[in-house]
Simulated scan of single mutants.
Amino acid sequence: MNHPSHFWATAWRYTLPWVLVASALLAIFSGPNALDAEILRFVFKPLTTVLIIAYAWSRTGDVPRRRTWVLVGLVFSLAGDIALMWPGGFVAGLVAFLLAHLAYLVAFTSTTRLASVWQPWIFYAAVSAALLAQLWPGVPGALQIPVVAYVVCLAAMAAQAATWWLCEGTAPLSREAGYAALGGLLFISSDTLLAINKFLDPLPEASLWVLSTYWAAQWCIATSLKRRPTSS
């Protein structure tokens, strides 16, 4: 006979993705070119990240250090989401997300030494250098140092996530490490689209592509935490 808590945990696990997708869609399609309902964006953009935090919180089977730092990264991401919604909040948002990536970087070193596999670091360094070279003429002088610092932290996070995955091989945690690596790649993709839209050329339906890849990245990073096995 199943315990009531097991029932509610199962219900939560299967309901949360649908609630999260609904919240994300309301946030994405509440911009000036869509529903034109600013209040929806101010409610559902942070709410979507809060739901991902709740999802990560429920995954209690991982090593404490990794779980703690992933949650710290998600909280900093929430702060960044809120900052970016306000006029003049770009630098504050940039700093919040930089701290989020540093937290994820620490999380991904919980069981894997930093840069113990060099190939992902070379790959993401080359990608970051190419991206900066394309965007640099459009980056205002006051933002150049913060943008470089942010790109370095983002690339390091993605590279370490891939390092963790490559080091796991066929180990039991390889699935979770794979989610982390995919999350890092999606974060790079999302921020590349955001940077192109802001510093190079406006993108059609930018909010759709930037936010969908952003929340997919965060979901993958949250899923990199191991779920505690449920007992019957």
Rank of each mutant, 00 (worst) to 15 (best):
T163S: 00
P229G: 09
Q134L: 15
I39W: 15
Y55N: 14
L51F: 14
G184Y: 07
G93H: 09
L84C: 04
C153M: 15
V63A: 13
Y104P: 00
A177S: 02
W121C: 04
I82Q: 08
W69A: 06
Y55Q: 12
M1L: 14
P204V: 01
A83N: 01
W219E: 11
L166H: 00
N197L: 00
F90S: 02
P46R: 12
L131M: 10
N197M: 00
Q218E: 07
I82G: 06
L208S: 05
L200Q: 07
T213Y: 01
A126T: 14
D191V: 01
L185E: 08
R175S: 15
V95G: 09
G80D: 07
W12I: 05
P4R: 09
S207N: 04
A22G: 13
Y124C: 13
R59K: 12
P172G: 11
L102Q: 08
N2G: 08
C220K: 11
A158S: 15
L182F: 12
A222H: 12
A177V: 01
R66W: 06
W165P: 04
V19C: 15
A149W: 04
A54S: 10
T68H: 13
F97E: 03
F7D: 12
N2S: 12
L154P: 06
P4F: 11
G169K: 05
A96W: 07
Y55V: 12
S23T: 05
S128V: 12
G138Y: 00
L193H: 03
A133V: 09
A24L: 05
T48W: 03
T10H: 13
T223R: 15
A177Y: 02
A125T: 14
L74F: 03
W18D: 08
R227C: 09
W136V: 03
G183Y: 05
I221W: 04
G138R: 00
W8A: 10
R65F: 14
T192Q: 00
P87N: 05
M85W: 05
A180E: 04
D201W: 12
Y124L: 14
P140N: 10
V151F: 08
F199E: 02
Q218F: 05
P87C: 11
I188H: 11
T10N: 13
D191P: 02
L194E: 08
Y150P: 07
S231L: 14
W121P: 05
L131N: 11
L194Q: 06
Y179L: 13
L203G: 02
P64Q: 08
L102G: 05
K198R: 13
V152Q: 06
L186I: 07
A103C: 07
V117I: 06
F7H: 13
S174W: 10
H101M: 03
Y179I: 09
D81A: 09
D81F: 03
A79K: 09
G88I: 03
D81S: 04
H3T: 15
V152H: 05
L35S: 14
A217W: 02
L20T: 12
V147N: 05
A107P: 06
F97T: 03
N2V: 13
L135H: 02
K226C: 11
A217E: 02
P46T: 12
G141P: 01
L40P: 12
I221C: 09
S23W: 08
V43I: 15
A206T: 01
G88P: 00
G73D: 04
W209H: 08
A92R: 10
A159R: 02
